[in-house]
Amino acid sequence: MYTPPLHIAIMENSKIIFEGLQAIICHSSLDCCVNRVETLEKLTEMIEHTPIDILIANPMQFVNREKEIKKLRRAYPTLAIAGIDFGIINHQPMLTDLSFTLYDSPEHILHSLMKLQEKSRSTEQEKEEDDNLTPREIEVLTGLVNGMINKEIAQQLHISIHTVVRHRKNITLKTGIRSQSGLTIYAISKKIVSIEDIDP
């Protein structure tokens, strides 16, 4: 089964600490990409379009923002958070899943990250595992490329409009294609519809 690389974001103002962590992570055998985010706002912005698996954060960034962190966690249940323990702030179990100090060995830090990876992945397992469309999604797609609107598709398949919308969302997630004309090309190249079926 294919697993995409782990996406790690580091929220830490010190360049020395960021670069150090990045070096440890990138030189390890972890299959991942590392991004730096400067503020909680930037993180929220980023997570909207790029899913993040693990956040490594300086807990100073969380001070007085507990509510926002909790909200973030609810919105993205697969996000795992590791805190950098500077010995200043008490470990807040609600906000971080685990923490490590800057004096821990690289092996220890990587081990912690791998544990978080397991957590993040096990929550994700519940989701679909491959990018193939389900028979239902194929039916919805066929309706779409034939120029039907959501309501018509819902009537034809005897499902609610809400369900059609959900299928459409999954189709886009799986194929990476949003526009109707793009989906048409997709459907033809996958032989879901033939070119003759489509109204000119």
Binding site: T175, I177, S179, G182, I185, S189
Partner: peptide, 16 residues
């Protein structure tokens, strides 16, 4: 931006 993305995805993932 979205359509450009579609074009890339079609070329990288779907069209034979």
């Amino acid at each position: 931006e979205l359509k450009l993305q579609d074009l890339k995805n079609l070329l990288l993932k779907h069209i034979d």
